[in-house]
Design a protein around this nucleic acid. Sequence first.
DNA 1: GCGCAATTATGCGTGCGCGCATGTTTGTGC
DNA 2: GCACAAACATGCGCGCACGCATAATTGCGC
Lengths: 218, 218
Amino acid sequence: MTTARPGLRERKKQATRQALSDAAVRLALERGPDQVRVDDIAEAAGVSPRTYNNYFRSREHAIVSAVLAGREDGIATAVAAHPSDHRLADVVTEAVVEQFTDASDQHPQLMVMITTRAPLREAFLESTIDVESPLSAALAARLPDRAADTARVLASSVAAAVRVALEGWIRPVAGEEPARGAAVSSLVVPVGALADRLRAALSVLAPAFDAAEGIGPR
Amino acid sequence: MTTARPGLRERKKQATRQALSDAAVRLALERGPDQVRVDDIAEAAGVSPRTYNNYFRSREHAIVSAVLAGREDGIATAVAAHPSDHRLADVVTEAVVEQFTDASDQHPQLMVMITTRAPLREAFLESTIDVESPLSAALAARLPDRAADTARVLASSVAAAVRVALEGWIRPVAGEEPARGAAVSSLVVPVGALADRLRAALSVLAPAFDAAEGIGPR
DNA sequence: GCGCAATTATGCGTGCGCGCATGTTTGTGC
DNA sequence: GCACAAACATGCGCGCACGCATAATTGCGC
């Protein structure tokens, strides 16, 4: 049940994207993110440096993308797929939590690196915006009147809440900043705490979801 | 009734910042934002190009700052100053609306330029993040238990909602993109619509504010 | 006033993001 | 198949953001 036919062109594009992202991650983990030049990444992926910039706006985004790729749709489809006899707020919360725990589960060292380097942190937080569009669509489908504007506000608020949770989670971890050039050192990232923070942050928005759903206050 | 003493040093800093921002705006309005080099701005402000970058991360931020400078604190102090027998949601909403109508009131042509040029739009939207910190502090002061985490989530959600409203307001205006190099042409910006959009977007979050305040549900 | 510490301004060098022009590949109608 | 259009890859060039090292400026204690 693959999604119809991506077409050869599209598949090649994704392959290139993947290759670039993988190369960026590998090199960054090996020698530290500051010692990776764009040319290195491009060469490792077998494309020209200029082409690299057609896929990613910055080195940081290429690295972060390895962790976040597909997460947006993961959240959106989880929301869309869930039975409608649950509170929307809960459905969204669990979808978000799952995607993030899952992410930091599959790339533990990468997560350490991202959380300990300022530019990567920024790119990571910045990427939370990417959920907005798919999530907004999924939400609209489950709202009375398919209220598009309301859905947009809720979606972007979710992204904002996620950002807050991530910031709060990252800060404690970032005890000391590693030297400018240095590969990643092992360090325990408390994933469990992230889930709690996400839930706490999103719970603040729950009343807004309830109201939008038409569930009365309380 | 100036706030204590900023100190000479601090005043000079602000003066430089102001000079840079003013120069950036003036040149951008005169010859179009694409025809303004960083060196021009620095020269017009009487500082070195390198110094310019100690104040603004990009050309765009220098321009946008002229409109947004102080707005963050404006919103925050408005929230802090308001009598506490109003719904927090209403107080915040009106504070936001006032600051934005006021802003586009004082710099009409600048607003046209910002809304019609993609890079400036982005910088403008990006700058909504700056309200978060002061607003968060102001909100915390008015929440039961001074719940800092809740305040942060609410503040960033407000910023997000504002972003959505601005995006929705900008899109209709941006009918056709001006040529790459061109000074600003006159064009009517429907400010009233912005206020409505802001109110609509923020009303979605109102239930969350009520709940955080302890009113509303039960 | 005077000198010392902290802050700020400046110069220089490097890597980068991206617009533009051009060659190359992929998809489509006949 | 074949030609034609659309999408993509690449090379080149220009500003630009920013780290680092250094000089100038400011503030403070005495």
